[in-house]
Each structure stands twice: as structure tokens, then as C-alpha cells.
Design a protein around this nucleic acid. Structure first.
Length: 800
DNA sequence: CATGGCCGATGA
DNA sequence: TCATCGGC
């Protein structure tokens, strides 16, 4: 494939977070809005602004209060908080929803961020070229399309139709390809809108950098073509710093050393000159990009390579003592655990490495950052507890940042930690031969690959498609195996082993970690302090607290644990969180009606859906409706037809699911939801406990289990989401939970209880890797779990 | 106190 | 492996 003749697209969602908020709360539509995070201080920091608000002068980097000044009627939805930090789950999920639509058009898709993706549509363009007469393309089938260097797209069309007769520069074939690309991108964007309700913009060019450059030139809800012969028109005025990879320090260096500002000026230098000044590789790259050449391929990557979370701890919220360090690490670890579990269910993979990163404030006020990694071993139980304990261990052994103070439970760090992050990566597929064999051994033969593959897509990188992965054969009896395997898929040990593996006593362990690390040499803090301060007590093994440092230094200048600001922050954000959750409960997201069907209603759905009805209803697509150009290319006719007959778009995840797999697949989603709901409940209990002031020395987790009765809050049970309660509906009391259930939903509701029982059993059976936290906590708080085999009867009755 | 919270890539 | 950069 000639990498100079590709058709590369960048799809960029318009003010994405705002769109997500608008979709979740349709009342916001048409109003000026900006999404903020952390409202308490000056209305929160603005991270996204919709176009109504932009028109009124609101920009990013403003605080919510400033935005109110510019635009008094602005609405400021806020990023939810969880565990004291921003939680962007809903935007991540929305981004994934969009990417799944994009993926239907090409598997050569590289997700560049939460709301951006590069697509290489060279092959689809070639396909389309076979059957499409270029002269039939009119402006009406590519609405909202611009071509750089032309006043309107009609002029570009005319040029293409006349083969750019009058110009020697005109590369007809290239322009033709981009035009067909624009047609396809129109369809892509229409599909994104029809299937998700989100609008996006696109850049269409022959490489990633150019696609990116022009994508932003017409927004929102527009697409821009950059023909090769217009590159110089763009470059004449384009600041070099606007180009990807040149936006930072390197770009500054290039501008400074060459005394230039625009891309056009960069063309004056030979490749050798550039290599001499910026090293060979960079020189070549600069030389090429100055001529519109960028050979970087679009990588097929749908899933992120790492999952991480981090937290800035600025100002007073900087971490100064061991207890709040532990608390933050635990929160970060718990979030990773949540996301990892979701990831494992969706992608059937397990990370092999974790990294903890942090930064501390130097004495001169600057920050210095560092990170340490750890490779998991097979016995590791990938839960928040392990992650946070490991993180603490790594952090302490790399920096030995704290010392005990005799007689005091809490210990102070020597320098404030301003940033903490944990991430996991180096993912490996779970379904290697050994594990598959073990699963098979356990469940008996007959289970096959559980991944439902979109067979239309070419094999991709990562775990998405393995060479040996084959389309699952229809198997009526695989439902059970499927759902069970979904719960077990991250396990490497058999259930028999589980029982003998006791979770380590965390309080003992982390203290032991702490103690042992005290005797390690080469403390980062020690080095720092020795270098800068020449403090006297930096001997390894010195167990005494520092004498309060010189008053001029920030060292040891901390409030006592328990009344430090972290705890306050935490409680207030907890309140925010509760509010957000309450709001969410009352939001009427039409999608939810589809999403939380019980198994039986999905079965109903399946019956009716067997009829092929894949066409999205043509909504009032006010601005652009590319007239549903369903022409007779191979992709559109043949493949789609086959797909329509055999597969079904899962309303939950958008994946193509073979119809004979649909029950199985929806059971999986239900199971996922049940578990989520269970975990939500546990989490809520935990939040409640955390909001109550706890003596610093106490381990809150232990305390929760012993002292705090688990408060059941039925309003958030999944059962309530399954039906919309309405006063006018005739209900029947459920003997099991005491709730009123509409009569016609009653059978469904019983299914729910059945499924919940199943879920419990599955949780009990979970093995160390990826045991669900809810199961773990139950294990400790409730009577010992009976170590019985999964009773076949109840599962069978459920699946019957 | 005040872009935060991501993610990926690269070079030593 | 870690530090640093770049970009959204």
C-alpha cells in the first residue's frame, strides 16, 4: 500500500462532554452550557464549552464564575466525583459508543483520545470507486463539506469533474479519492448521529497530521477536505506550532533556531540542514511534514493500552501524612479495580504490570515527578487493595517518604506529595491455551471462544482478533458456560484453589510494608533533604520523627491527620457525588429503557427483532442528512445483507451479535448489570461510612464491617430500573423483596431475583484474580461462605 | 492553590 | 525501567 496515497480521516466530536451532558439532560439543548469539574472553587474549572456558550465568549480555562459573568444564563453541569476525584466514566462510555459506530466502517481505526479517532478508509474508497461514477457525486450528498482552497465544495466538485484541466498541480486521482472519502465520511457522521445522537467534525486528507490539521477548520458538525494542491495555501499562514508534535518544546526549539513561524518557511531548509540541527530522524520528519508528507500509519487500536487514574493534590490538599497517602492510593486502586473488571469482561484481558507515579514538591517550590513499576505475579489478586498496597510499597521504597513518630498513629511525610497516579498496562489476552484448557476442564467440553466477533471486520491488532479465533458455532447449550466463563475469565486458578487462598490481612500487611521500608537505603526524600537542607537525621533506620524542620521549609508543616483538608474534600465531594447520583436517578434517558431489559423482555425483543429492521429511523436530521446514500457497493449491499440476516446490533454494546447468540449475549449484559448494581450498593455503603468522621488511626474498611450496619437503600436497586413505577399501575407485592411490582412485570421481576441469586453464587465462586470486591467484602462481613459447588438446579431453572 | 485527568510515545 | 514530552 502506497502510504502517500491513503485516505485518512480524523473524526473529532464537537465539544464532546457538553454533548454528553445534553444527551443525558435534553433540557440543556440549545442553551449555553459548559462542563465544569470541581465546582466548589469559583464555580469549577471549565473543561468543555458548547457552541452557544462559545458565541457568548465563554472559553476553556475559565472558571465557572467567569463564565457566569460573560453569560449569566449559562448552565454548568459538573463532572461527577467519585472517591474524591473526577469520574469521567460516562464520557468514556459515550466515546466508546461512538467508536463502535465508527468501527462498522473500518477496522483500521485508531482511537486517539476519548473523543477522537483516526480512520484509514483507503480500502473502502477503493471499493466504492469500482461501482461509483464520480460524476454522480453532487454537493447534496456531502452536506456540510468544505474543501480547503475552494470557496465552496461545488467548486471542488467541478474541479474533480473536469479533472482540474487547467492546472498542472491537480492530482486528479488523489482528489477523486478524497472526494469519495468525503462521501463515506458523510455516511459515517450520519451514522454516528443517527445511532448516538452525537455530532462530530472530520478532516479528510492523505495522512494523519493533515487530517488533524483541517478537522478543526470548520466546526461544529462539518467536514473538511484537504487536497494536496491546497497544502501550501494552508501552510502559508499556518503557525508551525499548530502541527501535531510541534505544539510543545520541540516546536519552540525549531522556531527559535530557524527563526521561523510558519510551516511555509520550514520548506526553505534542506533535509540535511534540518538533520544537522535537529538530529537525523527529526530532520527527516520536519522535511517531510513541511511538504505535507507524514508516513505514520493509522494503527488499528480500539482499546487503550493502559488504564490509569491520577489526582493532582494541589495546595492544601497535598498529601503530608501516611494515612491520607494510603487513603488516596486506596481510592485510586479501587477505581482501577472497577475499570479493570469492566475491561476484563469486555476485552478478556489482564494487565501484567502496574505503575505508580507521583510528584513531590521540592523545597524551592518546584515539583519533581517519578514513577515505579511492578510486574504482577500469578498469585496477585488484582483488586484495589493489592494495587494500593503495592503502590504504597513502591512509593515508600523509592522515596521512603515518611517516618514514624513515636507514639503517634499517623506519620508525616517529609515533603508534600502533589500528584499521585496508578496505572496498569501490558495487557495480555486471557485466553491462552492453558487457561482455556482449565476452563474447559472445569466446565466440560463444548465451550468455545466467547468473543463474538464482528466477522465483517478484518483482524485487528491486540486481543480483538487472534489468528486462531473463529466464529463461534451456534450452541444451544452454551448459555450457562458463557455466562459463567464471563465471570471466570480472568482467573488463572481453579476454584478448588480459591478456598485455600486467604486474603492477606491488609492492615498487618501494609504496616509490615511500611516498617520494612523504613530500613531501606537511599530515600529520595533523604537525598533531597541531604542535598538541600543537610538535615542530620537521615540515617537509614532512624525511626524517630524529624524534629520539625526549620520553620522556613514546608517539611513537616502539616495539620494533624483526621482534620486535614483531604478528609474535608472527600466528604464534600461525597456529597456532590450523592447529589449527582440523585440527579442521575431522575434523568429520563430513553436509552435506559432499552438498556435495562430483563432477560425475558430481551427475549420478547428478540422475537420481534428477528425481522430485519436494521435501518435507523430517519430522524429529523435538520442540518445534514446525506440522503442515505446506500449505493450498490459490495460493502453496502452484500455484506450488509448477510449481516442483517445473521446478526443483530446489541442495543447495549452495539456489537454485532449473531442472532443465535443473542440470548447468551444479553444474559452477559444482565449479569454485568447485576454485578454492577451489587457493587454500587457496596460502594454506597462504603461512601456512607467514609462520610462519617473516623478516628485517624482506625482502618475505615475494617470499621465499616464491624460497626456499620449495611443500610439497604432499595431505591437504587436494579429492580427499580427494570420497570418505571407509576402510581396508576396495578402492582403486586413481591414476597421476596416486599416491593410493589406492576403485575405485567411480575414474572420479569422474579427473573430478576433469580438472576440476583445466580450472581451471588457466581461471586462466591470467584477465584482470587478478579474476585469482585462485593464478594470479598461479604466474605468478611458475613458468615463464612459455604464452599459448595454451584447448585445446578437453580442455574438451570434460571436459564430454562 | 488553581486545566485536571487522562492517554501514548520515545530515548537513554 | 524511568523521565519526559505531547496532545486532548
Amino acid at each position: 500500500m502506497d502510504s502517500e496515497n491513503r485516505v485518512v480521516v480524523l473524526i473529532d466530536m464537537d465539544c464532546f462532554y457538553c454533548q454528553v451532558e445534553e444527551k443525558l439532560n435534553p433540557e440543556l439543548k440549545g442553551k449555553p452550557i459548559a462542563v465544569v469539574q470541581y465546582n466548589p472553587w469559583k464555580g469549577g474549572g471549565i473543561i468543555a464549552v458548547n457552541y452557544v456558550a462559545r458565541a457568548m465568549g465563554v472559553t476553556r480555562h475559565m472558571r465557572g464564575d467567569e463564565a457566569k459573568e460573560k453569560c449569566p444564563e449559562i448552565q454548568l453541569p459538573s463532572v461527577p466525583c467519585q472517591r474524591g476525584k473526577a469520574d469521567i466514566t460516562k464520557y468514556r462510555d459515550a466515546g466508546k459508543e461512538v467508536a463502535k459506530v465508527l468501527q462498522k466502517f473500518t477496522s483500521l481505526l485508531e482511537r486517539a483520545s476519548i473523543d477522537e479517532a483516526y480512520l484509514d478508509i483507503t480500502a473502502p474508497v477503493q471499493q466504492r470507486l469500482k461501482n461509483l461514477n464520480i460524476n454522480t457525486i453532487t454537493a447534496s450528498i456531502i452536506p456540510n463539506t468544505y474543501a480547503l482552497g475552494y470557496d465552496c465544495v461545488e467548486e471542488f466538485l467541478a474541479d474533480v469533474h473536469t479533472c482540474g484541466a487547467e492546472s498542472i498541480d491537480f492530482d486528479y486521482e488523489h482528489a477523486q479519492h478524497l472526494l469519495i472519502g468525503a462521501v463515506i465520511v458523510s455516511e459515517i457522521r450520519a451514522a454516528v448521529y443517527n445511532e448516538t445522537g452525537y455530532r462530530c467534525s472530520a478532516g479528510i486528507a492523505h495522512n494523519k497530521i493533515l487530517a488533524k490539521l483541517v478537522c478543526g477548520m470548520n466546526k461544529p458538525n462539518k467536514q473538511t477536505i484537504l487536497p494536496k494542491h491546497s497544502i501550501n495555501i494552508l501552510y502559508n499562514t499556518l503557525s508551525l506550532k499548530k502541527v501535531k508534535h510541534l505544539g510543545g518544546k520541540f516546536g519552540d526549539i525549531v522556531c527559535d533556531t530557524l527563526k521561523i513561524k510558519t510551516m511555509a518557511e520550514l520548506q526553505r531548509f534542506t533535509e540535511r540542514e534540518l538533520q544537522a540541527k535537529f538530529e537525523e530522524k527529526n530532520g527527516t520528519w520536519l522535511y517531510n511534514i513541511a511538504r505535507g508528507t507524514d508516513l505514520e500509519p493509522v494503527q488499528a487500536r480500539f482499546n487503550p493500552k493502559s488504564i490509569g487514574c491520577c489526582k493532582q493534590l494541589r495546595g492544601k490538599s497535598a498529601v503530608n501524612d501516611l494515612d491520607s497517602l494510603k487513603k488516596w492510593l486506596r481510592d485510586l486502586g479501587d477505581e482501577i479495580e472497577d475499570r479493570l473488571e469492566k475491561d476484563a469482561l469486555e476485552n478478556n484481558r489482564t494487565p501484567k504490570q502496574m505503575v505508580v507515579s507521583y510528584s513531590v514538591q521540592l523545597l524551592d517550590g518546584r515539583d519533581t515527578s517519578s514513577s515505579r513499576s511492578y510486574n504482577f505475579v500469578s498469585e496477585d489478586e488484582l483488586c484495589g487493595e493489592l494495587l494500593s498496597n503495592k503502590a504504597l510499597e513502591l512509593l515508600l521504597e523509592s522515596s521512603e517518604g515518611c517516618k514514624p513518630k513515636d507514639g503517634e498513629a499517623n506519620r508525616k511525610l517529609k515533603a508534600p506529595i502533589k500528584f499521585l497516579g496508578i496505572s496498569v498496562g501490558k495487557f495480555e489476552d486471557n485466553c491462552d491455551a492453558k487457561k482455556t484448557k482449565k476452563i474447559k476442564d472445569y466446565f466440560g467440553a463444548g465451550t468455545s471462544k466467547d468473543k463474538v466477533v464482528n466477522k465483517e471486520n478484518a483482524p485487528e491488532s491486540e486481543s480483538e482478533a487472534k489468528p486462531n479465533e473463529v466464529q463461534k458455532k451456534p450452541n444451544k447449550n452454551c448459555d450457562k458456560d458463557y455466562i459463567l466463563k464471563k465471570f471466570f475469565q480472568t482467573n488463572t486458578v481453579t476454584t478448588e484453589n480459591t478456598k485455600s487462598v486467604e486474603p492477606p490481612d491488609k492492615s498487618v500487611k501494609s504496616d509490615a510494608v511500611f516498617e520494612s521500608s523504613l530500613y531501606k537505603q537511599e530515600s529520595f526524600f533523604a537525598k533531597m533533604l541531604n542535598g538541600k537542607l543537610k538535615q542530620s537525621d537521615q540515617q537509614p533506620g532512624n525511626n524517630e520523627c524529624d524534629t520539625p524542620a526549620k520553620p522556613t521549609t514546608p517539611v513537616c508543616d502539616v495539620v494533624q491527620c483526621g482534620e486535614n483538608s483531604n478528609d474535608t474534600d472527600y466528604s464534600s465531594s461525597t456529597i456532590n457525588n450523592e447529589i449527582n447520583k440523585s440527579i442521575a436517578l431522575f434523568e429520563d434517558d430513553p436509552q435506559d429503557d432499552i438498556r435495562v431489559k430483563s432477560i425475558s423482555s430481551i427475549r420478547e425483543l428478540l422475537k420481534t427483532k428477528v425481522e430485519i429492521d436494521n435501518e435507523p429511523e430517519t430522524e429529523n436530521n435538520d442540518l445534514e442528512n446525506p440522503a442515505n446514500v446506500r449505493d450498490n457497493t459490495e460493502v453496502d449491499s452484500h455484506a450488509n445483507l448477510v449481516e442483517k440476516i445473521e446478526t443483530f446490533d446489541c442495543p447495549e454494546c452495539g456489537k454485532k451479535v449473531a442472532i443465535d447468540q443473542f440470548e447468551t449475549h444479553s444474559d452477559y449484559h444482565l449479569a454485568l448489570k447485576l454485578r454492577d448494581e451489587d457493587r454500587q450498593q457496596m460502594r454506597k455503603d462504603k461512601v456512607k461510612v467514609n462520610a462519617i468522621p473516623i478516628p485517624p488511626a482506625e482502618d475505615k474498611r475494617k470499621k465499616k464491617k464491624t460497626d456499620e450496619p449495611v443500610i439497604k437503600n432499595d431505591t437504587k436497586s436494579l429492580a427499580n430500573f427494570l420497570v418505571k413505577l407509576n402510581d396508576n399501575i396495578v402492582t403486586e407485592m413481591c414476597s421476596e423483596c416486599g416491593k410493589k411490582i406492576p403485575v405485567e412485570k411480575f414474572a420479569e421481576h422474579l427473573d430478576f431475583h433469580e438472576a440476583q441469586r445466580l450472581n451471588r453464587q457466581l461471586n462466591k465462586k470467584a477465584t482470587p484474580l478478579f474476585i469482585t470486591s462485593s464478594a470479598k467484602r461479604r466474605k468478611k462481613s458475613e458468615s463464612p461462605v459455604k464452599k459448595t459447588k454451584i447448585p445446578c438446579k437453580s442455574i438451570d431453572s434460571f436459564f430454562k
